[in-house]
Amino acid sequence: MTEVTVVDVIGYIVIFVGVVFDLLGAIGLVRFPDVYNRLQSATKSVTLGTFGIMIGILIVAGFTPLGIKALICGVFLLLTAPVSAHALSRGSLRFGAKMWKGTVIDAYGKDKLGGPQIESEEGETKENKEAEDEVA
């Protein structure tokens, strides 16, 4: 394993891009103010990052058993991670987790839960409601 071919270098670049996406998703999980913002950041970028890692492993390892299993694992992850994120966001909205106070509109809460689930703060509630009425 002393010589490094061009295909290996392409695989390393794809894996590195995936790892950077993973790290940025985890930083967004810490920094964002709200459950839904955190779910948005973390789920999308971490799914793409791990899929990139699997594709990079396929490129580096070639069509060996390790590479084919990595491809299967990546496709499975790409299919199931959005489903679990959607179930989690719907469950937390039904549970009563409030949205961030700068949120403009919440159509699902207005229709199904009897009012928008936006965190209220003095002085900004009226502006939010006016903006929401304009959008609606």
Partner: peptide, 14 residues
Amino acid sequence: TIADRMVGVDIMGI
């Protein structure tokens, strides 16, 4: 809230 912890567990599994 408990929803934040569940999001953390999900992302850590991936």
